[in-house]
């Protein structure tokens, strides 16, 4: 299928990704883990959304649900998932594998495990191209070379013949990005792609991703736990906690004027030079057990602002600005600058 079908007309401003009331639970004989509990968001074409959350917040599960990568038997998915014109819930496995890699691509955290150690980088990229596009092996190889140049891999011809273990961590991640971009997807999903990298390499990869995303006009959903990474790359930010988006808005709004107590707590517990010599304002306690469904706001037990009502009613998203919303019933209080 051609790419044109997959990308909705930008002029009409139809969202590229539409997620409505997504629930994911992992069911086994012993227990049910409710990993995602009612996530909704839109992504416009060419937009970068960062999903921020700590381990167990459901951010990676949301991404994998979007690509339908979760095990069918164990993971129960309900809600609406649309990428372009495709209803990701209704598609069968054959159609899904056509879409994966061509319309939607994914970059993982550990490039060493995401690349097959027994094939050369060039072989793996050409395989991806051949799977989705009608062209000869030669053309595919030329495309692979071109894409390696695009991700700024030095001496790309030599690297095409290299095995993953022969590359350094940064080059491996670039090769993985190249593979993900080889069929010009309209949506790229990136799951903590820079977390395993050194600081001086991480910034290179972030700048590269930002540049490629602009050039390709791709939608990008970027999952991270690092607020600094989000500030570098995001147009919009969604903060996840206990399987819900607790705050969503433009990067500037969420990071500079956070309204949800969890976002406020995350920002204040970020270690900075100013904090030297005194305690950091840490969020007390630990995230909830996702096997036990809690009544009310799941952040309430750790929240500075919580009142009795917090543990009885589940808060709905409240608009606090232009395309900026937070799930909290104490929003008037969190706005108080003195309370920060």
């Amino acid at each position: 299928m051609s790419l044109a079908q997959a990308i909705p007309d930008v002029a009409t401003k139809a969202p590229l990704v539409q997620v409505r009331d997504l629930h994911v639970s992992f069911v086994s004989r012993e227990e049910t883990v409710r990993a995602v509990n009612g996530v909704s968001f839109d992504l416009m074409p060419g937009e970068v959304l960062c999903i921020i959350g700590e381990s167990g917040s459901g951010k990676s599960v949301t991404m994998r649900a979007l690509m339908r990568l979760l095990p069918r038997k164990r993971a129960v998915i309900t809600g609406e998932l649309r990428v372009g014109a495709h209803d990701m819930i209704a598609l069968d496995e054959r159609r899904l594998s056509e879409i994966r890699g061509s319309v939607v691509s994914m970059v993982f955290q550990e490039p060493m495990t995401a690349l097959d150690p027994v094939y050369t980088v060039g072989r793996q990229i050409t395989e991806t191209i051949l799977r989705h596009q009608r062209c000869g092996r030669r053309t595919a190889w030329a495309r692979a070379l071109e894409i390696l140049q695009l991700v700024r891999i030095p001496s790309p011809e030599r690297r095409l013949h290299a095995y993953p273990h022969e590359l350094s961590g940064g080059l491996r991640q670039r090769a993985l990005i190249a593979m993900a971009l080889s069929c010009r997807p309209s949506l790229l999903l990136a799951d903590e792609p820079t977390t395993a990298l050194d600081a001086t390499v991480q910034i290179q990869v972030l700048i590269l991703l930002r540049k490629l995303q602009k050039e390709f006009g791709m939608g990008l959903i970027f999952v991270t736990h690092d607020l600094g990474v989000a500030a570098q790359i995001a147009d919009r930010v969604a903060v996840m906690y206990a399987g819900q988006i607790v705050e969503e808005g433009s990067a500037r709004d969420v990071l500079m004027q956070p309204r949800h107590p969890y976002t406020i707590g995350m920002l204040s517990s970020t270690v900075t030079a100013e904090a030297r010599g005194r305690d950091i304002e840490a969020i007390a306690g630990s995230p909830p057990d996702m096997r036990v469904l809690m009544q009310g706001c799941s952040f309430a037990p750790r929240c500075r602002f919580s009142v009795a009502a917090c543990s009885t009613t589940t808060p709905e998203p409240v608009a606090v600005g232009d395309r900026h919303s937070a799930r909290c019933i104490r929003l008037p209080e969190t706005f108080d600058p003195a309370a920060r």
Binding site: A199, T200, Q202, I203, Q204, L206, I207, D226, L227, G228, V229, A231, Q232, A234, A251, R252, L255, M256, L267, T270
Partner: peptide, 16 residues
Amino acid sequence: SRLGLDPDHRVDTAPL
């Protein structure tokens, strides 16, 4: 290479 928290002040060139 440290990443700031202000989206208005992004790093555009990698130091290394």
